[in-house]
Every structure is written in structure tokens, then in C-alpha cells.
Design a protein around this nucleic acid. Structure first.
Lengths: 246, 246
DNA sequence: TGGAATGATTGATAAATATCAATGCGTTAT
DNA sequence: ATAACGCATTGATATTTATCAATCATTCCA
């Protein structure tokens, strides 16, 4: 099971990320409230069908437009979830860190991926096929309700994002994005976050140059410190004010 | 049941909208795919607990921030669903016409209304309490899946809206909004739609003056005709082009 | 070690969009 | 009738934001 035979080239190679592959995925699942209602049997079933894969930074996990055959659980690393929009412009919806599930609005609708998911750091993810998941949902109504709760939570975040993107100026959006990264993505890292300029622009729906300029202003006012992709938030209160004022 | 005693003023008055109140709500429910999987008993239950109310234009049905105690079904009229954002600016998420259900992301999460729903035309709506609906969901897994499908469909529309609002210029957004109103809201009305200027601005996340100016340009090019709140789409292809180009 | 590629930065400029103020125009209330 | 109100319109202007072009730094690779 841990070794895969590639018959085309007649090579036996070790399954990727095998060393860190825990014996049973109950450990991961226990960290996600959405799976609270699963029975032992259902967890076992997931454990049997799941497939763990490692991705390097920049590698696409799901591509927008392809068939949605699996959902994934991020075990390690960091990924960004974004919509590929007009003229090669992307809109980053969120960053996802371990341990979290990534689904999509294609589930129960057209079974397509409507976003692209890309590894930002070295990432390992478990793939769980839609059919298994559907079977479990049909067996377990509490799990269905958990899913509804999960989706509704995301809808709520989308509502906030609508206001963030359409009713705030660039300063407010950048401050909001930095706070989001601090509070939700790079927690417990002492106010230190890490993001590429283009990603910051894609997260706030502005041009890269504009994002850089706002960042520079914040740096000049000592509200943040910048070193490459690392940004240190020196004055959170100040950022909160800027974000709030818009 | 059709008459309500108001004890404070000792007046017996006819329940609003009583005349048009159908005997049983099966008729409405049959028009909404989301309710396909309900049993006769479950439809009867909804029929017993629902409460039909009429609203005048401009009246708020649900107010953002209040407790979410019911979902509604729009039977007649037209409502707008919008987020109340910053500095009294609103963002209209969608218009809803009969027969459709209006829920919200508060369901299964914090049980609050995260949007405001307002009647645009004279509207009648049936209120169904959350508890009854929850009971039915727990009885009927297919209904739970229908709900998931419904929510996911809305998420997908929200994704389109993200791109619409953040990656298109004002011309594209106005054209897109006019086409949305034509295709989804004022269907089968010969290309004639009706909307206030402020609502068009709130739908496209721009100032009212900007919306008016774009509208005037389109009128000067004979792409649309304007008479008060009535707008006639003369050249749909042209609007599609403008919307597509952004 | 010298490109070549990638990403960050800056300045100059143009384009997009909002704001402000004034006016007009119906409808409603007194 | 007249005032008051809400909504639409227009012009002038200010602000916001994107684009373009050039430069710089860093890494990676042959």
C-alpha cells in the first residue's frame, strides 16, 4: 500500500510524503469540527479511500474548470484559493492552513472546480473522493448539517469580503488583508506574516504597484516593518483603525 | 385562523393578504425544485405553520443584524436582498421574484440575518419558522442535500459577482447588471426592466451619479431607451459585448 | 562567473471614479 | 396653490487607482 508500482517505466517508488503519513486519519479529522459527527466506521472508510499527496510551492492542486472529483484536507503547509478572472487577473478568496477541508460550490451542483487551489508553501493534502463523501452524507444527517453550517460560514465570510472589496479604499483593504493574514493565517507568529506582493494585490483586488505603494506608506509610518516577503505588524491598533475607516 | 384578534385595541381585522392566500401551499412548493423531496406530511406541516404577510414597496422584511427566526417564500411581488455596508452604502446581492425562497448564512451558524430584505414592489411572503424547517431537514436527508445544492449554487453566483465587481469597469458592470435584470428578474417582459437609479448603483457598487452617466451614454448610443425607472434593452448583443469586455 | 529569469520598487502619467453643488421635476402634504 | 420632499440629472472638480516604463535586487542555473 505504501509503495506504488509504475508499470509503464517498471519503477517501484515510495509513495510521496509517506514518511509523515499517519497510520490513520482519525487524528486529522478530530481537529476539524465539521467531522465531529462521523462514526468510527465512517472515519475508517475515509481512511481507506483517502490518498495523501505532497505539493511544492507554486503547484496547482485543483484547477478551475476541471471536474470536481475529490475534496481535500490540508495536512501541512499553506495553500491559496483563488478565482481566475478576466485578463489573467486572479482574486484570492482565502488562504487555507492545516488542518482544514477545501471543497467548493461544485459539490451537489455541476461537479466542477470553480476556483484554483495552489500550494504556497510545501503542502501535503489528503484527497477524498466525492462519492465516498456523498455516501457518508446520505448516511449521516448530522454530517449534512455540519456541511451546511460550514458552507454558510463561508458565505458569511464572502459577504464581509464583498464589503471589504467594494466599499473600502486601498489603504483600508491592505490593512484589512494584513490583519486577516495575522489573525487567521499566521496566528501565533508574533505579528509576523509572509506574502508575495502579487498575492497581496490579488487578495485586495488592486494592482501590484498600488499594493507596494500602500505597503511603503505603512512602512514609512512605522506601522509595519518589511523584509522581503516578511511583514511585521508593529501597530495592530493602527491597522485596525485604517481598516475600519476604510 | 384567517382572522386575528388584536386584544390591545379590541379590533378584529382581516389577516393581510387573506384573499389571495391559497388554501394549501403545495402549489407554491411544487414550483421550487429545492422542495422536491418533501413528503406530503412535511408539506402539510409547512402549510400549517407558515404565515403569509403582505409588504408595501420600501418596507423591510428582514433587517440585517436581527435574529433569524424564519425563512420566507416570496409569493408575489419583488424584493431586493442587500448588505448594509459602510457609511450607509448598500450592496445589492440579488433581486428575488416569485416563487423563491430566501434564507441566509445565519442558518445553522449564528441565527442572525446578515442581509436586509426589502420589498421593491408590493410583495407577499410566507414565513416559515426555522425550527420547523430544521425538523424537516433532520427527517429528510434528500432535502438536506437540496439545501446544500441551493447554497452552493448561491456561492457560485457570489463568485461571479466577485469578478463582476472587482475586475470590470463601470460600463461592463452596468451592462452586466442590465442583462442580469433582463435575464433573471424581468424575464419575458420584452427587454423591459425597471429599476431606480440608486438601486442600480447599489447593484454595481458605484455612485448613483456614475450609474446615471453610464446609462446616459448607453441611451445616446441607442443601446437602451430610458423612461423614468423603465429601461428598454434595444441591443442585447451590444450589451453582452460591453459586459464581456469589462 | 555571467546571464536569464523572477519579483520588487519607483516615478511619471493617464484613466477611472467619486464628490460636491446646483438645478429640475414630479408628487405629496398642508 | 404652495411648500416640502424625494429622486434624477448635469457640470465642474478632486481623488483614487491603474498603467507604463525603467531600474534594481536576488536567485538560479549552465
Amino acid at each position: 500500500m505504501d509503495f506504488i508500482k509504475n508499470s509503464t517505466f517498471n519503477i517501484t517508488y515510495r509513495k510521496m510524503d509517506d514518511k509523515k503519513n499517519p497510520k490513520h486519519c482519525g487524528a486529522c479529522i478530530s481537529k476539524m469540527p465539521i467531522f465531529n459527527s462521523l462514526t468510527e466506521e465512517q472515519i475508517d472508510l475515509i481512511n481507506q479511500v483517502r490518498c495523501r499527496v505532497k505539493f511544492n510551492p507554486g503547484e496547482v492542486i485543483f484547477k478551475q474548470g476541471t471536474a470536481m472529483t475529490h475534496i481535500i484536507v490540508i495536512n501541512e503547509g499553506l495553500v491559496k484559493v483563488y478565482i481566475e478572472g478576466i485578463d489573467n487577473r486572479n482574486l484570492i478568496l482565502r488562504f487555507v492552513k492545516p488542518v482544514s477541508i477545501i471543497g467548493g460550490p461544485g459539490f451537489f451542483t455541476d461537479y466542477k472546480n470553480h476556483v484554483t487551489t495552489m500550494a504556497v508553501e510545501e503542502t501535503s493534502a489528503c484527497f477524498i473522493d466525492i462519492q465516498t463523501l456523498t455516501d457518508i452524507i446520505k448516511q449521516n444527517k448530522d454530517f449534512a448539517i455540519s456541511l451546511l453550517q460550514w458552507v454558510n460560514n463561508h458565505t458569511l465570510l464572502n459577504y464581509y469580503k464583498f464589503i471589504e472589496l467594494t466599499q473600502k479604499g486601498m489603504h483600508g483593504r491592505i490593512a484589512g488583508a494584513l490583519l486577516y493574514l495575522h489573525n487567521d493565517v499566521f496566528k501565533e507568529q508574533n505579528g509576523e506574516i509572509s506574502i508575495k506582493r502579487q498575492d497581496l494585490a490579488d487578495l485586495t483586488a488592486m494592482s501590484k504597484e498600488s499594493a507596494i505603494r500602500i505597503l511603503k506608506e505603512l512602512k514609512d509610518e512605522n506601522i509595519i516593518s518589511v523584509d522581503g516577503n516578511t511583514i511585521i505588524l508593529n501597530k495592530i491598533d493602527n491597522l485596525n483603525n485604517i481598516s475600519f475607516r476604510g
